[in-house]
Amino acid sequence: MTAVDVQATWWWPYLMIFVAGWLATDIWRWIGVLAAGRLHEESELLTWVRAVATALIASIIARLILFPDGPLGQTPLFLRVSAAVIGFACFKLSRNNLLFGVGAAEAVLIGGWLILM
């Protein structure tokens, strides 16, 4: 069978899902478990690893707010940033109430969207 024939079989997408999807993703999770070994929570190595993971997620957050895909990308940058900042302020004012903070950010975004667009 040629490559094109193989890709036309019914099982090809499932092979892709299990090998290129599941294995290729879970391998990193397993490596993470094995690398953590018996390291202590307060160890220097794990403190650094946690800082790397935190900075990584922070950069995902910044990217999603500053360079979003789809319909959100049509909104002006200042609207998205002010929604996030006001959400943060309301979160702090409500003593770390997640629902209140997220709700405030969404209210600013939707309100601004209706007014501006």
Binding site: G32, L56, I57
Partner: peptide
């Protein structure tokens, strides 16, 4: 999905 590795590692302890 490399990013999942430090995350899994930090979660374990």
């Amino acid at each position: 999905s490399i990013r999942l590795m430090p995350m899994a590692m930090a979660l374990m302890p």
